[in-house]
Nucleic acid binder design. Sequence first.
DNA 1: GCACTATATAAGTTCGCGCTTATATTGAAC
DNA 2: GTTCAATATAAGCGCGAACTTATATAGTGC
Lengths: 121, 121
Amino acid sequence: MTRAFDILGSPVRRRILELLAERSRTSGEIVEAIQREFDISQPGVSQHLSVLRESGFATSRAEGPRRVYELGAGPFGEVEAWLDRFRGAWSQRLDALATEVARGKRERRLQRSKEPVRRRA
Amino acid sequence: MTRAFDILGSPVRRRILELLAERSRTSGEIVEAIQREFDISQPGVSQHLSVLRESGFATSRAEGPRRVYELGAGPFGEVEAWLDRFRGAWSQRLDALATEVARGKRERRLQRSKEPVRRRA
DNA sequence: GCACTATATAAGTTCGCGCTTATATTGAAC
DNA sequence: GTTCAATATAAGCGCGAACTTATATAGTGC
């Protein structure tokens, strides 16, 4: 876990994960995309990919001479678990601030419906 | 946003936020609690508090000579927003792996999660 | 005023991350 | 085999974050 937030701390790595969330890509595609936004060399990107691989945030398989990267679950679960502790407290603060917004409190029920389908037993 | 994950990257700061999620505390209480777990000086903790203050992850008010720290919403929302992009994709991987937390036994036979077959309808 | 407590800021050092260039590895095509 | 393409690894460097110690600030009580 400890590492998870460090790994997500890099804007380049976050961007790579965003790219992989769209679809799987080869190392070359990632390098190309990243270099359009960041001034960084191919080995630079490759090292970030290495970090993502080792952490499980991404997986890779060889496909001929290319490496296809895919989003991995990795420590996302741990990040979520950690954040869970704050969801309650934090939304309370938002509510406190929300006096300005003057939103109806029942609005929050709508948010709840955004959750992935969760079947109650 | 960029800063949010950097700020959460520090274990000391994460621990402070956990403490504040329980209840508000004075700087002294935080220093004491942190020093039980980390080998760090009072100014060290104070600097972390400063970072949390400036980012909005925490707020402080003077109470006599003490400073009372309280959890702030800060960039939590941005972190959540960023993670939102991955919740879908990421839970798919978890399903595909069909491992991890064994999330309870929903009895619906809607989904037999043993097979690696990932048939998204 | 002085002394003491609580906390923050200043100034300086160290260490690891994120980069670089150079090179190794692996695969395909010839 | 040789050569080219795609990618990873090695080695080294610079800079900023996270510490440290020392000191300043602010509040309370005498």
